[in-house]
Design a protein around this nucleic acid. Sequence first.
DNA 1: CTGTATCCCGCAGGATACTG
DNA 2: CAGTATCCTGCGGGATACAG
Lengths: 128, 128
Amino acid sequence: MREPLPADMFDELCPSSLNPIRFGDKWAALIIRCLEHGPRRFSELRVPLSRVTPKVLTQSLRSLERDGLVKRTVYAGATPRVEYQLTPLGRSLLGPMASACAWAQEHWDELLDARESYDDSSRLGRAG
Amino acid sequence: MREPLPADMFDELCPSSLNPIRFGDKWAALIIRCLEHGPRRFSELRVPLSRVTPKVLTQSLRSLERDGLVKRTVYAGATPRVEYQLTPLGRSLLGPMASACAWAQEHWDELLDARESYDDSSRLGRAG
DNA sequence: CTGTATCCCGCAGGATACTG
DNA sequence: CAGTATCCTGCGGGATACAG
């Protein structure tokens, strides 16, 4: 209950200071879930991710590709056709993500309540 | 393998567009792990989180407190003494976080390798 | 259809110094 | 000891338009 903490968490724990725990950029997790049940084309992804501009979607996909989580396949033909799919490495993230997702489902209300009462008492306590 | 995706992932899946999956701000996950084995004082947190300025550490802690994940306790006395500890809600995050952490430990090398070969072929392929 | 090209901006987060 | 106060910066990410 009172062992000293390691001197530098950045060297001691997960590589790169545990930042992979954030699962990449803002849309990465959502994209991965969109690919969970099979390959999708760019335009197919744009539907559920309607709030993401094509530029940003491309950015995120490139980043995922770079990290070996997603594979991009171009099919030759008259009209462009590109498919994105999870690599085995990408699939291996589904477990942890499901775990985080379940947490959110289960505790989201608590978190919102906490937030609300914190804000309330701040407003009252400091009258502003 | 080709069911259509839900129209808007933001309404369909985890609350707030799955963003809780990012576990808060840049340092949140690290802080939570620092509190895993019991309450810590501000200055105790500063040691392992030596790269985080006091301002930012305070910010993150406040945010965690606001979300009901961390409890802040002030002990009266001659000199200031403040302790931070996980709430039950905060503890409930340890599971998912451990899962994400284990993933990072296990697959970090693969990810780095992927990144490297992606960057290499970009450099060669486009000669830039 | 699958993206780039530009331009733009808020704000998380860092540096540094100071306080009760 | 446990923070604030200020100032500053990068860049993630959005809007809009265009291209192969």
